[in-house]
Structure formats: C-alpha cells, structure tokens
Design a protein around this nucleic acid. Structure first.
Length: 104
DNA sequence: CGAGTGACCGCAA
DNA sequence: ATTGCGGCCACTC
C-alpha cells in the first residue's frame, strides 16, 4: 500500500477517534500507539482539546478507564455522554472498561 | 532551532 | 485511597 496522506499525528488520531464504534471506548495511550507513536498520550490529549470538537472524544478515556478531567462540563458531562452513547459507566470510571476497549 | 505546554502514564511514599 | 514526582512525545510560539 502506499501513502495516501501525509499522516500527521493529528490526522491519524482524529481519524482513529472518528472510527471508534458506539458502545466501545479507547484510551489516549492506545490511540497514540495506533497512530504509530506510542507514548504520545499527552499529545493526544492536546489534540482532544484543540482538535476537531465534532469527534466522539467522549469515547476516549485514560488508561485506568477513568473519565477525562478537562472535558467540557467535567467528568459529569463526560459520564453522561458516555451513558447516552450506550457505555455504562460510573461517575468516575467506565464499567468493564477493559472489555469495552476498542481494538482495530 | 530552543523552550514551554498538556483532556497522559506509571510508580513510590 | 490520595498526593507527588519524573518521563515521554508531538504541537505551538
């Protein structure tokens, strides 16, 4: 296969987030690794804040399955959105998060 | 090219 | 359980 795009880290991450199926969640570290740059979880967080707001960032949680701290509205809004998406979660972390971890 | 930043990650006290 | 510390990496100024 060939390079169809310049695959910027940002582009890759946004694309991955966009393809996360409903009912599943992913982690910043995993997305960074899937984007080809494991360890860049922090950078993914930066993209989440400054990237495309239309993407389902609500399906993206931290390595512990916990909700993000900088989510617009706070963990409450994040938890609410996740539940609305079909992802059962407590007010602080996702239930069965490791089983709901999206895998390409 | 250098320094600062962050919706993180993991560990230790 | 909570708090603190360092490390890692891409992005922005």
């Amino acid at each position: 296969m060939q390079k169809l795009a310049a695959s910027s880290f940002r582009e890759d991450v946004e694309r991955l987030v966009q393809q996360i199926p409903e009912g599943l969640v992913s982690t910043y570290g995993d997305i960074a690794a899937l984007a080809g740059h494991a360890g860049a979880a922090r950078t993914v967080g930066g993209i989440a804040h400054f990237g495309d707001p239309t993407l389902p960032w609500q399906r993206v949680v931290n390595a512990k399955g916990g909700l993000a701290s900088g989510y617009p509205g706070g963990r409450e809004a994040h938890a609410r959105d996740l539940i609305a998406e079909g992802v059962p979660c407590s007010e602080q972390r996702v239930e069965d998060f490791e089983e709901r971890r999206w895998r390409p």
